[in-house]
Amino acid sequence: MKVRILGCSGGIGGRHLRTTSLLVDNDILIDAGTGVGDLAIAELAQIDHVFITHSHLDHLACLPFIVDTVGDMRNRPVIVHATEATLEIIRAHVFNWAIWPDFSVIPSAEKPFLRFSPIRVGEAIDLDGRKVVPLPANHTVPAVGYQLDSGHASLVFTGDTGPCPELWAEVNNIRNLRYLIIECAFSDREKKLAVASLHLCPSMLLEELTNLQRDAEVFITHLKPGQIELTMQEIEDCIGEFRPGMLQNNQLFEI
């Protein structure tokens, strides 16, 4: 499995800041933030599955545009995977005819451009031998992270989460874990905001990573624009022993 980072910023601004999206091989997206907009139309048309961590706009902003752009180029619907709670939010607040047309019934209910598929934490979805496993997360709306498992190695993406003991219980059971992509949205000077919004800051990230019992390369995502250097310096000062890297657009992982 090849995982390409399309976007990993906590916001936008300039040519290099794109919000969260990961392209797995050529046909799977994990989240659909603004990074998806850099794909060519031919690349968009190859996407069969979109796994959404949660309903916040920075993680699904491009989902309506994907379906609208390539729906008529495909012979089967794009399948959107998310928890039932997240799907209910997406149906009610995005594909509701007021914000965007309901492509789950366009051009017809029998042959739609979009299909919703509910998932449950811990229940793997097998896509031609590639497993996508929803993991626990703790956020202000229903949320999950994902394990991507090729059979040889795994990558874990936490999505947006505050402190979450249930996540580490699952991660520590992954014997072939190679990469951990974990959020750190705020600097420590905004710890109160991190706590209130169920995100992490460096000191909270340290507390979370002390629960990690597997060897893995750690990468930091969801840094807020304007605080990137400050937050990464605080991370280095706080958790340098984990040797975390800053996730980058177009970074490629092979598992």
Rank of each mutant, 00 (worst) to 15 (best):
I5F: 03
G11Q: 04
I12W: 00
H16V: 11
H16F: 08
R18D: 09
T19W: 00
T20K: 08
T20N: 06
L22A: 07
V24F: 01
D25S: 09
N26S: 11
D27F: 11
I28M: 06
L29K: 00
I30T: 05
I30N: 06
Q46V: 05
I47F: 01
D48I: 02
H49E: 10
I52L: 10
H54K: 05
L57E: 15
L63P: 11
P64K: 05
I66H: 09
V67K: 00
V67R: 00
D68I: 06
G71K: 05
R74C: 07
P77V: 10
A82M: 05
T83E: 11
T83H: 06
T86L: 10
H93T: 15
A98S: 07
A98W: 04
W100I: 04
W100H: 08
F103K: 05
F103D: 03
S104I: 08
I106L: 11
L114P: 13
F116V: 02
R120A: 09
I125R: 10
D128S: 11
G129Y: 11
K131Q: 15
L135H: 01
L135R: 02
N138R: 14
T140S: 04
V141Q: 01
A143P: 13
Y146I: 12
L148V: 15
L155C: 09
F157L: 14
P163Q: 08
P163H: 07
W168R: 00
A169F: 07
E170F: 12
N172L: 03
I174W: 08
R175C: 08
R175G: 13
Y179K: 02
I181W: 08
A185M: 10
F186C: 11
D188N: 13
E190N: 13
L193V: 14
L198S: 04
L198A: 11
H199A: 13
C201I: 03
P202L: 03
P202N: 01
S203I: 02
L209P: 05
N211Y: 04
Q213A: 14
R214H: 09
I220A: 02
G226T: 15
Q227L: 14
Q227G: 04
E229Q: 13
G240V: 07
F242H: 12
P244L: 00
G245T: 10
L247I: 13
Q248G: 00
N250V: 10
Q251L: 15
I255L: 06
I255S: 08
I255Q: 12
